[in-house]
Amino acid sequence: MSELIEKLLAGDKRAVARAITAIENYEDETEAIIKEIHKYTGNAHVIGITGPPGAGKSTLTDKIVKNLIAKGKKVGIIAVDPTSPYSGGSILGDRIRMQDLALEPNVFIRSMGTRGYLGGLSKATHNAVKVLDASGVDYIFIETVGVGQSEVDIVKTADTVLMVMVPGLGDDIQSIKAGVMEIGDIFVVNKADLFGAPRTATEINMMLDLNQNMKRRPPVLLATAGKNEGIDELVDELEKHREYLNETGELTERRLNNTRMEVIELIESELRKIVINHTEEEGRMKKCVEDILAKSTDIYTVRDEFLKSIRG
């Protein structure tokens, strides 16, 4: 076992930071790290915090984490912000709302850019969670980018999804559309001191009551993170959800599903490389594309020919 892994497992922050950097940038190192730490993962309660931009996700995370560390818990936080599609750069600003946590010995915060991923997380987030998990934290919070309507990748990584809403984002039809509204395990209307908060909560409740197929009806809470109001209740609900997951076997079921998806994605990604190498060899793709535009063949015929030659 390498020195980095040993330190990481002992909870050394520098080692954890280095491992996450490796995971964000280098595929072969990621593989080596994950293989070594795999057996030490699966212990932390992974909580996804998602919701529209400006809903107060970072402030809420800050307050929940303070509540947990006061109880002696260890916490890891991954905060994702968008990467510019133009320059590839990003401004990661979630730490601004978590300044007091920087020096907490039992808290580790890491900011990540999405780097081209559109589901609300980055490609490396899932593996970064494993690193934090292996480092011995009790809770991992993943704060997604501000989501719109369909960034739902967080369900593939988190055990519990906390959906943060705010008053005044639109009428109730917004809450019955498909997408992010379907993935919340717990809903919280933040900035509850603003006009319209009870109504927003009612609309969410009505939307949830329409769904008859739910195994568990998610609770809807009110909170004002900036004033530290409603945080105890939220932390209680997080605990209740964790208990529910354990007691019903739902946790195992979710993790089985997610791991299955993860393996499929890894295979897809390797297959994609094989396909690209094959099609780009000797300018085959360029020739085919020109033929398609010249109408001498079509996209489906070309697909079948490629598949045939790849299979050998």
Binding site: A17, G88, G89, Q99, I109
Partner: peptide, 26 residues
């Protein structure tokens, strides 16, 4: 950011200890 870098901005009134802790974790 526009030059393609990932910038972590931590906000106002940071102590040297906070700055170094953030630099290590990030």
């Amino acid at each position: 950011r526009d030059a393609g870098m990932e910038v972590i901005y931590t906000g106002l009134r940071q102590s040297p200890e906070q700055i170094v802790a953030a630099a290590i974790q990030e």
